[in-house]
Design a protein around this nucleic acid. Structure first.
Lengths: 224, 224
DNA sequence: ACCTGAACACCGTTCAAGT
DNA sequence: ACCTGAACACCGTTCAAGT
């Protein structure tokens, strides 16, 4: 009931409104009562994270399709966080979530990357990194949506006006590429997922065929 | 003086201790006095971000070395944020920093990526994405270091104990790869930078030579 | 223009006392 | 075991009043 009430408040008024006092009030009691069921606010946050993320569909790893599967999983994670603004911030703050639902998703990601043929010692770093980027993207996206609509629009106008007034001699590239900054966040995210996965694929090839292979040479960043 | 006092408090006691009241106290005055110089707490944060990031060295873009230059810039940004715990959190929360110091760094990154030959419309998304990942990494790193030492160690032990008790039938990959999770965060970060840059290089090649080239064929993720 | 004291409307958490 | 009222030690921001 506590987690439900907290999720309700977050959905209606954003994560900032989810205080122990506000949640308790929702349940017609005082804040002290919550501490019989929940260690502290951090634990409540972790339970909310689990509630939101528990039902991400996880595929059976298929070595032939690891790239598509990884991208799909990343998109699913981002989608669910963007849909519940506030959850991404909790995920950023939670460091290492240890709640069952999240671990299942992380395990699925490990399974997919493992099936790619990437050396075992690189699989956890790759998954950590990807999960972190997905979370950070969703967090930025929810900053926009969770700000009061009018406030966000005002800030956006301020920024646009500011960008238009930039001195071309101090920041030439910003000025030159100004037009390319307007764009859909989710498209940028998809592009970045592709870039990341292509980079992983290069690592796979580099480790599968350390010497220049005969049939179809591919070059990754060999420099590490 | 206000920004200096705030940086001092953050350095000594962490970002959470940087309240308007605490900073005012540091200056032997009341919290209301600060509002004559600073619009609100968000603006104070932005000024702190600028103070910390203003002197990141920025290279002259060299098309021959864009990969090394990009990696170096990412490492420099991460290093400075990890050195000032709290700055990374401000950077995550600030959405689009509009302060001069930060814009110069962003401009330098745009210049480097532009010199790589990546299509212009992909340059801003790539820089946004890279900057976001760098910031997110530094944020996670500072979560560890900014927690009270004893508290962080306790939490780490809890997590390790928990990971050791995981059921192999529910999360087989987590259990199988457990040993590879212990590792230096900064090494993982460098690996991820390499992966990302290799992915970008693949995109560059894919757009430079859309048909199979003659001399030295390279394959990127052609699928988008 | 800059500063101040006092106030408003909040926080998370603890603790003795109850059932 | 669960709940409660009251309290402790804080927040960001505003505002009338001062210099």
């Amino acid at each position: 009931m506590i987690v439900d009430a907290a999720m309700r408040v977050m959905g209606a008024e954003g994560l900032d409104a989810v205080s122990m006092r506000r949640v308790a009030h929702e349940l017609d009691t005082g804040p002290a009562s919550l501490y019989a069921h929940v260690r502290d606010k951090r634990e409540l946050h972790e339970l909310m994270l689990d509630a939101a993320m528990r039902d991400i569909p996880v595929p059976e790893p298929d070595p032939e399709r690891w790239q598509q599967q990884l991208k799909q999983l990343g998109l699913d994670q981002a989608r669910i966080m963007v849909r519940n603004p506030g959850i991404a911030r909790i995920a950023m703050e939670t460091l290492i979530p240890t709640t069952p639902g999240i671990l299942v998703t992380m395990d699925a990601m490990l399974g997919i990357v493992r099936s790619s043929g990437l050396p075992a010692r690189l699989v956890p770093p790759a998954c950590d990194g990807l999960a972190l980027y997905v979370t950070a993207f969703a967090y930025e996206a929810s900053l926009w949506s969770s700000a009061q609509d009018s406030e966000a629009r005002k800030r956006l106008e301020e920024i646009n006006a500011y960008l238009d007034s930039l001195p071309a001699d101090r920041v030439p590239h910003l000025v030159a590429m100004r037009e390319h900054f307007r764009g859909e966040g989710i498209d940028h995210f998809e592009f970045m997922l592709d870039v990341f996965i292509a980079g992983l694929a290069a690592q796979v090839n580099a480790s599968t065929s350390p010497a220049a292979p005969a049939t179809e040479p591919r070059t990754g960043s060999r420099g590490r």
